[in-house]
Simulated scan of single mutants.
Amino acid sequence: MSATDEAKENADSLLQDIQKKITEAFDIFDHESNKTVDVREVGTIVRSLNCCPSEAELHDMLAEIEEEEPTGYIRFEKFLPMMTKVMMERRYKPNPEDVLLKAFQVMDTEMKGHLTQDELRKCMTEEGEPFTQEELEEMMSAAVDPDKGIILYRDFVSEMAVEET
């Protein structure tokens, strides 16, 4: 087998693997088993596939695959090619651990090595793309050290970081 044939076989294998992951993630949210999902579930599906678009980027993705007359549902036949392209191009990859750590260190103006719940809440709701109350509560439940009541962000960052696959 030539190197070109082997490269094509590897690319085909990667494509099949990606499309299988997309199909499995979509199917979890296809509650009616009719190859559609609620448009509000698409962000969860995309993020479950290890892609982390901003809300604006997610909005652009939805605009690309929504029906001309929005129905509130996204069809698999439109989702699959768009999401395949996103994953093949490795768009919206999560930030590595060192970048996440630097972001927390910026919030820790006194360099204490931790944040209080109020400091984190203020940053997450008043800066950049604000978290919803639900997102904030979910983050707090994972981030706050139950014994100390603070966010030991070095530990939390290693939990947040996603290993490249």
Rank of each mutant, 00 (worst) to 15 (best):
M107R: 12
L152H: 15
K122R: 14
S141D: 15
R75F: 07
A7W: 09
Y153H: 06
E66Y: 06
L49Q: 08
S54Y: 02
I150K: 13
F26K: 13
R154L: 09
D108Y: 00
A143D: 11
Q133L: 09
A63L: 06
E97S: 10
S141A: 15
V42C: 15
L58S: 10
A7R: 11
V106T: 08
R75Q: 04
L152T: 15
E24Y: 09
P130Y: 06
T125D: 14
C51P: 01
V157E: 09
F29N: 11
E137S: 08
M61S: 06
F104Q: 02
L120C: 14
A3I: 00
E163H: 08
M82K: 13
F104N: 00
P96S: 05
E159W: 05
E68W: 04
E9C: 12
S158L: 10
C123V: 13
M139N: 08
P94Y: 08
V144S: 03
T109I: 07
A25F: 00
K122S: 14
H31K: 14
G43L: 10
A3N: 01
E69M: 14
E77Y: 09
P130W: 05
D98F: 08
D60K: 01
I74R: 01
Y153S: 01
E66L: 15
R154M: 13
R90S: 07
P94A: 09
L49C: 05
E57I: 05
H59G: 07
V37E: 08
E159I: 06
T125E: 14
R121A: 04
R40F: 11
K102N: 03
S33H: 04
E134N: 12
G128T: 15
C51Y: 00
I65K: 01
D108S: 03
M82S: 05
I74Y: 01
D147W: 05
D17Y: 08
E64A: 14
Q19W: 04
E89M: 01
E137I: 00
E9Y: 14
V106L: 04
K102F: 04
A56I: 02
D108R: 00
K20L: 02
V106D: 02
A63K: 09
E67S: 12
R47Y: 02
E138V: 01
M83D: 08
R121P: 11
V86E: 03
S2A: 10
L152V: 14
D17G: 09
Q117F: 03
N95I: 15
L62P: 02
N10E: 08
E24L: 08
F79G: 00
G149P: 13
G149W: 15
M83I: 07
E159R: 14
V157I: 12
M124F: 03
S13A: 13
T44D: 09
L100Q: 00
V46T: 10
M82L: 11
S33E: 03
M61Q: 05
S13P: 08
T109V: 13
R40A: 04
I151G: 07
E66V: 12
I65H: 01
